[in-house]
């Protein structure tokens, strides 16, 4: 068994090696040149510091990237995740503040609703054959409007210690969202690798006709991926609302879809579908957040932030491109 493992592991690791190296390089740079970056202090059994902040701040992107990885692996994409985040915030806030139903019920209802919203995307893409970009664009646009209607055009503030704990609380010394990410990662891995679902997703994404002819049901596979992404977005929405103790339908989850897609791509799951790598997507999310934090801590003027981010992302993507590496190697060989 161990021999088999050693034969399998390198291939898995090889996929992850580039995003991991990029993350390590970013951390190393900060550790050496950014004052106070590596410092982690423990107060009341809670860890504080930039590294902890990065974990906490990237939790939303990490959560959603788990679902998005599966959607992208089916050769699709989900643009509606940001809107679903906003809806989740508004719904959770209204249920807690106006309906006065218990916190567990409110969270369960919100998650259930987001699962249904994801299933709506899955129906459009899987059963009706709408292009994924177009299908999810519908909810991306309509969803934010729905969130605004639900909030009645206002920011609903939530005064609930239980609700605030979700983003602000600590568990095992780390911010609670980290626990949520860990649990969702375990669930996703169990669902996809513990069953045959992962194989079906990769088969559908890599060659849908062949998968269909082999007896896989592509509609059901896509339905699962989009519905699961809806659930992940719902949880991210709850974290975001809990963090600011309010539901802000205008800004919650704004442009989140772009960061998430970027995280998945940096993580090594190709946009044209097929093989997927959940761990890679989480590393991708960490890279994006580390970058943002770095830029802030180094005092780069705000107006440069996006440009710097774009340049670093470009470098990471180029480093991952096998074509470019081959080209560079040939250059060196011929020189």
């Amino acid at each position: 068994m161990s021999e088999r493992l050693s034969r399998l592991m390198p291939a898995r690791l090889r996929q992850l090696i580039w995003p991991l190296m990029a993350l390590a390089a970013l951390l190393l740079f900060n550790g050496l040149f950014t004052d106070g970056f590596a410092r982690v202090t423990i107060r009341d059994g809670h860890a504080y510091g930039s590294l902890v902040d990065i974990l906490k701040l990237s939790s939303r992107v990490m959560l959603v990237s788990l679902g998005m990885t599966l959607v992208i692996a089916t050769a699709g994409v989900d643009l509606s995740v940001g809107a679903v985040v906003a809806i989740a915030g508004s719904v959770a806030a209204r249920l807690i503040v106006q309906q006065q139903i218990g916190l567990p019920m409110a969270l369960a209802a919100t998650s259930g609703l987001c699962l249904v919203l994801g299933a709506w995307n899955g129906t459009l893409v899987g059963w009706l054959g709408v292009q994924p970009i177009v299908a999810t664009l519908i909810l991306m646009v309509a969803g934010r409007g729905i969130a605004q209607l639900l909030a009645g055009g206002q920011i609903i503030t939530v005064e609930s210690s239980g609700f605030s704990f979700i983003a602000g609380g600590y568990f095992l010394g780390l911010p609670f969202p980290v626990t949520m990410v860990a649990l969702m990662l375990l669930l996703t891995v169990a669902l996809t690798r513990g069953t045959a679902l992962g194989l079906f997703i990769e088969a559908v994404g890599n060659n849908e006709t062949a998968a269909l002819f082999a007896g896989v049901n592509p509609c059901a596979v896509k339905m699962f991926a989009y519905a699961f992404t809806g659930l992940c977005s719902g949880m991210a929405g709850i974290i975001e609302a809990s963090d600011i103790k309010a539901a802000d339908a205008n800004n919650a989850g704004l442009y989140l879809e772009l960061d998430v897609i970027l995280a998945v791509v940096i993580g090594g799951t190709p946009l044209n579908g097929g093989r997927f790598d959940l761990a890679g997507s989480l590393v991708g999310a960490l890279i994006i957040q580390t970058l943002t934090t770095t830029i802030k801590m180094r005092g780069v003027p705000v107006e440069y932030t996006l440009v710097v981010k774009a340049v670093v992302v470009l470098v990471i993507c180029l480093a991952q491109s096998p074509e470019l590496r081959k080209l560079l190697l040939q250059r060196r060989a011929s020189a």
């Binding site: 194989l199 088969a203 890599n206 062949a210 007896g215």
Partner: peptide, 29 residues
């Protein structure tokens, strides 16, 4: 090429696919 082979998946995954699909996703071989 377009209707049978799933190019990026391994020989193993390509072979077990139809059997696994007939068993359903829950009963993983």
């Amino acid at each position: 090429k377009t209707q049978a082979v799933i190019p990026d998946l391994s020989v193993r995954e390509n072979i077990v696919l139809a059997l696994q699909a007939s068993k359903g996703w829950l009963r993983k071989i």
